[in-house]
Design a protein around this nucleic acid. Structure first.
Length: 522
RNA sequence: GCUCCGGUCGUCUAGCGGUCAGGACAUCGCCCUUUCACGGCGAAGGUCGCGGGUUCGAAUCCCGUCCGGAGUACCA
């Protein structure tokens, strides 16, 4: 039989590739989202796995839009799908906007192909027409529920004679085409992640292949397309594993060799259930809006359900490509740990050069739609500084806060004091120094010292503070340093004091010391 | 209910018959330091879901069991 997919055939194809035994089937993988919403991170992780696998094997990565359910189509979903991929640096070799030799890449444009193949199955007897109405099916399921018997189509239309079918057809009754599953025996396939998976054929539903409106279901369309587009490996989420035997039977019915299947574990929320809206941010693009770097998100999701096999964790896309393998995919589900993502995002922020940081922050500020960010108290001045301020000044301000920030959204507040002379004084910081006997003298000393200054280096600033300590006879430098910080920034934490002073410059310092003199006085 | 998949520190994971079960995030402590952070060092945290086998030896192999998840549509 041409469609016979034996373990031997599998081994030859699968291991041949990996152990250099001369196989040379081009690796072609696909990401096949349906435009029913903005893709969530689990979904995009699957795209990433496919992309990384293609790159690691020198193969091709295809994007195919599975829009066979007109009723579920969502406006803007396609744009979000492509934007998510592009954001993370997942480039496709064939698909929307770029085409390719196996197009069209929208299933809605391939209807004839599916109908033709459904007919072929009908002729072969591998599929049959079902005239059951939705109501009939609902009653059947209700009966099954009540009697606690497995819920599946009872195949009542499968035994219809040619005569009966002819009559139904003549009467114009709508019908669907169902797959005629084998009534006995086992359906097995070799999963690249889980090994052999086996099902009792009789327990699997006679899946609808063609709906009554003539459109295919996922099951038919994906098998037909995967074959026609010469997909070599189907890497998809574990939620698909239970429909895989149906697909295997379809490949057999058509006489086609099935691709290699690899089912990646699902991503769970903290409660252990599959990640969904209830868990908060799940859209891939949510993370872009909330100040995460694409590199961090890609790196992080790659590590849920996959591991390079060693202890590496911070891995950029090229490194991921080089390290990726199907063997590294884990069978067990993983929890999406936001804390770890944040840590990783901080790592990537710190790895940016001053210039890169500036560009990234400016682009983020200009593009994000995150309301919390846009409406935050310190964002307006920050945004203004980014657009109209002294670029070098802003860049250096960002650099001074770089190691303290985990999300791009944190910059406005962290840098606020660089851009406003009337800093917001932190109550605790003020309380600690307010009314202390040496404060007024300290401020006066600075004012006096600063009178004829313009340019000051960090060393100059340090010398000024040291001079103050000496003049006022303070026991510890800290007695000057801390209140100076509060006077200049309004708070008791932040970048190194002398660096921050140097960046602020003499003029700004003068203004602030004047203000602080009053604020810190009893 | 039925089918399938899964089960190593709280979380992500390494492990693939012999390791003191390793790393990372988070937590705590110490160091560095003008603060916060970064960084460094260290601690705590796992009887490898549980019970049986196989074996000189099991997280690793087998069986059972429990728990969790996914699927069970004319959705993908």
């Amino acid at each position: 039989m041409p469609g016979d997919s034996t373990a031997g055939a599998f081994a030859k194809r699968f291991f041949g590739r990996h152990f250099g035994m001369g196989s040379s089937v081009m690796v072609r993988v696909r990401y096949a989202p349906s435009p029913t919403g903005s893709p969530h991170v689990g979904n995009i992780r699957t795209a990433l796995f496919n992309f990384l696998f293609a790159r690691s094997e020198g193969g091709r990565f295809i994007v195919r839009i599975e829009d066979t359910d007109q009723t579920r189509k969502v406006e803007g979903a396609l744009e979000d799908i492509l934007a998510s991929l592009r954001w993370l640096g997942i480039e496709w070799d064939e698909g929307p906007e770029i085409g390719g030799e196996f197009g069209p890449y929208f299933q809605s444009q391939r209807l004839k192909i599916y109908q033709h193949h459904a007919d072929e199955l009908l002729k072969k007897g591998a599929a049959y027409r079902c005239f059951c109405t939705p109501q009939e099916l609902e009653e059947m399921r209700e009966y099954q529920r009540i009697n606690k018997i497995p819920q599946m189509y009872d195949r009542r239309c499968r035994g219809k004679t040619a005569d009966e079918i002819g009559k139904e057809l003549a009467s114009g009754k709508p019908f669907v085409v169902r797959l005629a599953m084998p009534l006995q025996g086992k359906i097995a396939f070799e999963d690249a992640v889980r090994g052999r998976v086996e099902y009792e054929a009789s327990l699997i539903d006679d899946q609808v292949l063609l709906k009554s409106d003539g459109w295919p279901t996922y099951h038919l369309a994906n098998v037909v397309d995967d074959h026609l587009q010469q997909i070599s490996h189907v890497i998809r989420g574990d939620e698909w594993i239970n429909s895989t035997p149906k697909h295997v039977v379809l490949y057999q019915a058509f006489g086609w060799e099935p691709p290699i299947f690899a089912h990646a574990p699902i991503i769970k929320g903290a409660d252990g259930a599959k990640l969904s809206k209830r868990h908060g941010d799940t859209r891939c693009l949510d993370y872009r809006e909330k100040g995460y770097l694409a590199e961090a998100v890609a790196n992080f999701i790659a590590l849920i359900g996959w591991s390079p096999g060693d202890n590496r964790e911070i891995m950029r896309i090229q490194e991921l490509e080089a390290a990726f393998s199907l063997q590294g995919i884990q069978p067990s589900p993983g929890v999406f740990d936001l804390q770890k993502l944040q840590w990783m995002n901080g790592e990537y922020i710190r790895a940016l050069s001053k210039e890169q940081l500036y560009e990234v922050v400016a682009a983020f500020d200009a593009n994000t739609k995150d309301e919390q960010y846009l409406e935050s108290a310190s964002r307006a001045v920050f945004s203004q500084a980014l657009k109209k301020g002294d670029k070098d000044y802003v860049m250096r301000a960002l650099a001074l806060e770089q190691e303290r920030v985990k999300l791009l959204t944190e910059f406005p507040e962290a840098c606020e004091f660089f851009f406003v002379d009337h800093v917001r004084f932190d109550d605790q910081g003020v309380a600690k120094w307010k009314g202390q006997p040496h404060i007024e003298a300290l401020m006066n000393f600075y004012l006096e010292h600063l009178a004829d200054k313009t340019e000051m280096s960090a060393e100059d600033c340090e010398q000024m503070v040291n001079a103050a300590v000496e003049r006022l006879g303070l026991l510890k430098r800290a007695l000057a340093i801390h209140p100076t910080r509060v006077a200049l920034t309004g708070r008791s934490f932040g970048p190194g004091l002398f660096e921050l002073m140097a960046l602020l410059g003499a003029a700004r310092m003068k203004t602030r010391f004047e203000i602080a003199k009053n604020v810190l006085n009893a």
